[in-house]
Amino acid sequence: MKREVLKIDHIQKYYGNKNNITKAIDDISFSVYEGEFIGVMGASGSGKTTLLNVISTIDTVSAGHIYLGGQDITEIDDRKLAQFRRENLGFIFQEFNLLDTLTLEENISYALTINKVPAAEIPGKVKHIADKLGINEILNKYPGEVSGGQKQRCACARAIVNKPNVIMADEPTGALDSKSAQMLMETLISMNEELAATILMVTHDAFSASYAKRILFLKDGKIFNEIIRGDKSRKQFFGEILDVMTLLGGDLRDVR
């Protein structure tokens, strides 16, 4: 049995006041194991972004516990949150979120410097990751000078370079064209398989989701369904996802 990296234990998240409560997350529990590539799907307002935010320690839960690497993150002191985040989590965002003032190389090394990695080790580590993700040629360029797909691969490199417990990907293909999206998903797969990264990806795009190994479907703050790819081909899995989405009442527009 693989190590349990992330454990979500009956969490709830409410918004609003006494008279008008919105349950963004309504009692969700699941576990993520080391080396997993898990997708979270759901329509707008299903609670997937809230889920991502509470796991990222950007938001707090109303009830329940989240264990990351054995530590209960709902109980961590506010002042230590930043440190916890940089040591345990890596992020990939829809809007890339690279620093436009730094080159791609610097963007990646900055993630290392804030983790206080010795200066001598940094160039090596950056090069290693850049080789793996095929962005070695463009390392000295600024984000404004490269394509969206290249930017997102750089963001992947930045997320994984610290070898975090979990990489959180929030709609990573949302701002990419279909060709770049496909390339990026392959990059994520190789990160998952070759670099043994644990990835938690939130998306509402069935195509991207079909690359994951397990998918959780959220609806109105609850887990509606869970499917596992197993030995199925990606095409089969894709069909399965579409079936669940139809059941979910998801609009066909969401399916692309």
Binding site: A82, Q83, F91, L98, L99, A111, I114, N115, R158
Partner: peptide, 14 residues
């Protein structure tokens, strides 16, 4: 930019 680095784990004091 500050939002990005905060998400990356740079503390408020930093």
């Amino acid at each position: 930019r500050f939002q990005i680095i905060k998400k990356m784990g740079v503390s408020d004091t930093s």
